[in-house]
Design a protein around this nucleic acid. Sequence first.
DNA 1: TCATAGATGCGAATGGTTTGCATTTGCTAT
DNA 2: ATAGCAAATGCAAACCATTCGCATCTATGA
Lengths: 147, 147
Amino acid sequence: MRKENLIDKIMDAGLKNTKYRVHIIDLLSGTEELLSAQEIYHRLIHKKLRINLSTVYRTLDKLVETKIVSRVQIENEKQALYEYNRNIHHHFLICQSCNRIIPIYHCPLHEYEQKLEEESGFHITAHRVEFFGYCSDCQKSVTKHSS
Amino acid sequence: MRKENLIDKIMDAGLKNTKYRVHIIDLLSGTEELLSAQEIYHRLIHKKLRINLSTVYRTLDKLVETKIVSRVQIENEKQALYEYNRNIHHHFLICQSCNRIIPIYHCPLHEYEQKLEEESGFHITAHRVEFFGYCSDCQKSVTKHSS
DNA sequence: TCATAGATGCGAATGGTTTGCATTTGCTAT
DNA sequence: ATAGCAAATGCAAACCATTCGCATCTATGA
Ligand SMILES: [Mn+2]
Ligand SMILES: [Mn+2]
Ligand SMILES: [Zn+2]
Ligand SMILES: [Zn+2]
């Protein structure tokens, strides 16, 4: 995304345009990866930026509040992960061996959700799905080891 | 569950039979609620047991290892929650207003999982689903307030 | 009963995240 | 362009759930 667009995005959200915000959004929007606050911090430091870790956390809080970024807490991971919000509903497939996180863009729950609302009386606003298992690479290496 | 059965369960798992383990399993198996380590600790203290919080954590670790108990990490909750493992596959409906957690015993993903395995090459071993929303009680109070 | 692996208590450490406060910066109205 | 104010930042300290080291105790089975 062009820098001007990033700045628009920040200001449209009612936030002040600061260089760190531009860098953080730029970083997240430029990768498919989910990054932790600490990973973001280290990548910015590596780019010779003198940002402080608390600024990273505070910036991410703001970006999550304004829905520019989403925060994801994977089961059993201590660090929260952040991803650029591309407004595409998705879930994750997580390899328990190499820890790769793969997004899935098909959601099997939309019809079910309505049924669930009727049955439960809940008004459902969101859901979350994660699949755990072993990616094809890791299945191969297990086979190799055990043969 | 009778105390003798609890003790059998503990010893069958290869753990030593200690009074705290009996109390913790008893507590969890006697409620539908998900309890945090700290909540368990306080409930035992309230029963005049002189248990230590680290013992609670260590006991829960063992019980999770041996699958007597399951550990659940709800998105945005800092504390892990524990539930007695009744070996009934289920997911949760979570009220974002009153924080009630309601188990759902129907799983809409079993067919889908196979398709996903074929498409992704993953070998899936587990999944996790959470629905967020507002329970019927909380919907009522919102309506009341806003009218 | 004894020996020993495992369980517990206690205090300290860990590690991700948050916060208080002084200082700096971006934005808006002049 | 400039001043004024709210918001953002840096830094150190706090927070808080969870874990760990180590001394002591206890359940188990030989
Ligand atoms: Mn979905
Ligand atoms: Mn399921
Ligand atoms: Zn893998
Ligand atoms: Zn509710």
